[in-house]
Design a protein around this nucleic acid. Structure first.
Length: 899
RNA sequence: GGGUGAUUAGCUCAGUUGGUUAGAGCGCUACCUUGACAUGGUAGAGGUCAGAGGUUCGACUCCUCUAUCACCCACCA
């Protein structure tokens, strides 16, 4: 064990020494989360949102997992049984696409391989590349229980999926139906509404004339953005209250190009104001038209196939839908049916994965009835049984729940959980947990399983249950009893509907209880220009490169520091300099403390024995020490409060401000001075104990955010084994009694020092010149503590200090300042410019006098004095008196100078 | 069309129930290589808190409207 830290801080070394691999071999983080709850310990559970197996580490993961790790480490150090459940998601479409692409490059299609052969390829691919994201996550130093790693396609998770499907089906909440769904022509599968992204698109609004069969020369004009679907028109609809068309209802019109006769029908759905007020009805290619057709018993014709190409004749078969659109406009024109074409911008749905326009497609799919599930899920959030942070996401959640649509869960893919439904020879459906069971139910073994697989989210919504070993068969085990409901879910607001909402439904439905208590919605990370990070823009920094350049701790600290609750965050990797500089500062401060320790105690063993069980002794504390102890405990109060309020960026701010602003800038500077004094050995030892113990406390509160450097420095405090970890040490708690009143007094010393330094700087006193400082202090306690710290003032200002009594005359040729009723004079023969000094004091007097005027006006206001709380009024009076006193002194000084 | 959030120093952001002479980091200016640290220290410049009303003794903070930006939801062809 090394007693002293290296001269320079190298994050690579530190991260390597305390790597995830180290802890896995030592069993530290893993062992923390035991399979069975330790007697007397309270559980605390976090669910890791399972990253896609196809994924690689993004800054989104960094923020998300750092936050989870902060919660876990904090709770673990606070004495809870902290369990963090990791895993990966099979990501149906994404994975299948990736593997298909790889195969295509080798000249093989999935159809060539067949279902079984293709799935073997996917599993092999997963073996080879699927672990990448987990390996990268380990670089972040996250302390989850890797032994419990679950994959959504593992047998236990798959069993749970089958069970969930079967029980929802039996309860009548899953049904199969022919409906218009969102179809991705590239992936050739159905999608849920959530997988469709609406984007504005410039199209043409085409006005087409439909001749009326019985009224030669007359026609009805409709407007459409999808003229290629004219071929599948089955009616023209108008509003029954539209006087323009009233007498045409019931007539027949000729569909251009197709030549078919279709009726003119009346339906309230048609908006009189829009377009021409007449609407073509194409039930197979528009969900609204589908409903209208249902109301009017119209036939359904289909002209666009599953590959997005035209299927019908009339010379279009096999054409891409967009090419067909161009061609039909030309054809309409040559037939004389085209009235005009307008530019038109509207929102069009795109497939989330393939980024192509989705096709409304009529097909048989499986659906989950969502309304019954939504009711309770809404209730638990409304009633605060589940809390959202920030709370404003409740409105978004509520709106979705109140307008919920059925969930299309079948996907025409091969990679995923195959739907546990079988068809007998008559086409009757048998839903069961297995083929054998289905055969038993059906009374035959001539069953064919449904070809489709389930939406990936159908396994994700069971995550809080499956990670604890719930399979549907096994619904109660020690894990579930101990850790369900889990505590905190950390996730991005972009998957509030996909995942969060559905997990709540599933938890309530399958387990009868909420899946978690608190949901922390992270910031969305953007680049410095506020754009979303994306591969195509090339604005997405590789976290591993950032880690290599700045360090994991620096990245973790920086990203949490700049990510406020509920706001987007603009990230540039240069910002990590902030975290890196902080880490360096910690390193160097620790070096100073350890150097002092060595001077006083010699070797670390001697120190360690003496330090064990140290508590500060009020009798031995100097003013500065008393002050830093007070500040330390104040910091602890804010720190724990911030945790309870989920204000994670406050945590970093609180810890940073304490360490930089108080511990390093003031306390360590005074420590150096105090230890060079002739003080007795007991005080000297006590001073080092205190410095080390506050450093240790600081390391502990920082540890959840910066696990590596805190671990390293903590191991240098006393001799420790490599298997010991700060992660299993006890989080310090605030002790109110250290918040001493003396604290105010040391502030007086600080103010004198700052003011003296300011005078030196303003008048350009050379740094190696020993100036003198004469001060006159009104306030007795302040005077006492300044006197007690004369040596500190002297050393920190480079001025010999003289404390004068009352009625002090301004020393000649001096610069002056008034602070908190104390007057400071710095005689500077030869350096002082009277004009400069007068100008400076006048400026100061000016601002003080305007403040005095404002305060006088305020206190003269009867309304204020009568209505404001007494303490506020008293405080204002005191502030006015002080300001007036300062002003009087400034004026007196100016008077002397002017004569 | 509905909803949510934002607007504070040149830049990025704090400012927790209304009472501070409105703060930090970066950048900028000056001085300092002092035995922890130049990835540093000290001192300083820099803001009519988006705009207009209102509530109040008192508004960066609460309410209303306006402007700008961002995101989410929505079946108007």
């Amino acid at each position: 064990m090394i007693a002293n830290l290296d001269k320079t801080y190298d994050h690579h070394d530190v991260e390597h020494r305390w790597s995830s691999a180290h802890w896995e071999s030592e069993g530290i983080y893993g062992a923390e989360s035991s399979r069975v709850l330790v007697e007397g310990k309270e559980p605390y559970t976090v669910l890791m949102p399972p990253p896609n197996v196809t994924g690689s580490l993004t800054l989104g993961h960094v923020l998300n997992h750092t936050l989870q790790d902060i919660f876990i480490r904090y709770q673990r150090m606070s004495g809870k049984e902290a369990l963090w459940l990791p895993g990966t998601d099979h990501a149906g479409i994404a994975t299948q696409t990736v593997v298909e692409k790889k195969l295509r490059a080798e000249g093989v299609s999935r159809r060539d391989l067949g279902r079984k052969g293709f799935l073997e390829h996917v599993w092999r691919w997963r073996e080879e590349y699927g672990g990448l994201i987990l390996k990268q996550l380990r670089k972040l130093g996250i302390s989850c229980d890797w032994r419990r790693n679950l994959f959504t396609m593992d047998e236990s998770a798959s069993a749970a999926v089958r069970h969930a499907f079967v029980s929802l089906y039996r309860d009548g909440l899953i049904y199969r139906g022919k409906r218009i769904i969102n179809w991705c022509p590239v992936s050739q599968t159905a999608l849920s509404d959530e997988e469709v992204i609406m984007k504005p698109r410039k199209d043409k609004l085409v006005y087409v004339r439909y001749p009326l069969v019985k009224r030669p020369g007359e026609f009805i004009t409709i407007a459409t953005v999808r003229p290629e679907t004219i071929l599948a028109d089955v009616a023209i609809a108008v509003n029954p209250n539209d006087p323009r068309y009233r007498d045409l209802i019931g007539e027949l019109a000729v569909v251009p190009v197709a030549g078919r006769h279709v009726p003119v029908i009346a339906d309230d759905y048609v908006d009189i104001e829009f377009g021409t007020g007449a609407l073509k009805i194409t039930p197979a290619h528009d969900p609204n038209d589908f409903e209208v057709a249902g109301r009017h018993n119209l036939p359904i014709l289909c002209v666009v196939g599953r590959d997005g190409k035209m299927t019908d004749e009339f010379g279009y078969a096999g054409m891409d839908r967009f090419d067909a659109r161009e061609k039909i406009i030309a054809d309409l024109e040559s037939l004389g049916n085209l009235e005009r074409v307008e530019d038109y911008e509207h929102n069009v749905g795109y497939s989330e994965r393939a980024d192509v326009v989705v096709e409304p497609y009529l097909s048989e799919q499986w659906f989950v009835k969502m309304k019954p599930l939504a009711e309770k899920a809404l209730q638990v959030v409304n009633e605060g049984e589940i809390r959202f942070h920030p709370a404003h996401w409740i409105s978004t959640y509520r709106h979705w729940m109140e307008n919920i649509q059925d969930w299309c869960i079948s996907r025409q893919l091969w990679w995923g959980h195959r739907i546990p439904a079988w068809y007998d020879e008559e086409g009757k459906i048998w839903v069961a947990g297995s083929y054998e069971e289905a055969c038993h139910l059906a009374g035959t073994d001539k069953l064919i399983q449904d070809e489709d697989v389930l939406d990936t989210w159908f396994s994700s919504w069971l995550w809080p249950l499956t990670t604890l070993g719930w399979t549907g068969e096994n619904t109660d085990n020690e894990d579930i009893r101990a850790f369900y409901p889990t505590d905190t879910l950390v996730t991005g607001p972009d998957i509030i509907f996909f995942w969060v909402a559905r997990m709540i439904m599933a938890g309530l439905y399958f387990k009868g209880d909420v899946p978690f208590r608190d949901v922390y919605f992270t910031s969305i990370i953007r680049d410095l220009k506020g754009r979303k990070l994306s591969k195509s823009l090339g604005n997405s920094p590789d976290p591993l490169k950032v880690i290599d350049a700045y360090g994991t701790d620096a990245l973790r600290f920086t990203i949490v520091y700049i990510a406020p609750l509920g706001q987007d965050v603009l990230f540039g990797e240069e910002k990590c300099e902030f975290g890196r500089n902080f880490a360096t500062k910690i390193w160097n401060a620790a070096r100073l403390v350890f150097m002092q320790r060595e001077k006083v105690f010699g070797d670390i063993e001697t120190f360690g024995k003496a330090y064990a069980g140290f508590t500060p002794d009020p009798e031995l504390l100097s003013g500065a020490q008393r002050w830093i102890l007070g500040r330390y405990h104040e910091m602890l109060v804010s720190y724990h409060t911030a945790f309870s309020l989920f204000r994670m960026n406050d945590i970093t701010r609180i810890v940073y401000d304490f360490f930089r602003g108080d511990y390093c800038d003031w306390y360590l500077e005074t420590l150096k001075i105090e230890l060079t004094e002739e003080i007795d050995e007991q005080k000297r030892r006590h001073a080092v104990f205190l410095a080390v113990s506050i450093l240790e406390g600081f390391l502990k509160v920082l540890h959840p955010v910066m696990p590596f450097i805190t671990e390293e420095v903590w191991h240098h405090i006393v001799e420790r084994k490599n298997s010991e970890s700060i992660a299993s040490s006890i989080m310090p708690q605030a002790e109110e009694h250290w918040k001493s009143s003396e604290q105010e007094d040391f502030t007086a010393v600080q103010k004198v020092i700052s003011e003296a330094r300011s005078l030196r700087a303003v008048f350009g006193v050379p740094h190696d010149m020993n100036a003198s400082l004469v001060i006159s202090v009104q306030d007795e306690p302040a005077k006492r503590i300044i006197a007690a710290n004369t040596h500190i003032v002297t050393r920190m200002t480079g001025c010999t200090l003289e404390i004068a009594g009352k009625g002090l005359q301004r020393p000649p040729h001096s610069a002056s300042s008034v602070v908190d009723g104390s007057e400071l004079f710095m005689p500077l023969e030869g350096l002082i410019s009277f004009d400069k000094e007068i100008a400076r004091l006048e400026k100061e007097a000016g601002s003080v006098s305007s403040y005095v005027m404002r305060m006088e006006k305020k206190l003269a206001n009867k309304g204020f004095v009568d209505n404001a709380p007494e303490e506020v009024v008293e405080n204002e009076k005191r502030k006015l008196a002080e300001a007036k006193d300062n002003l009087r002194k400034l004026d007196a000084n100016l008077e002397v100078l002017r004569n």
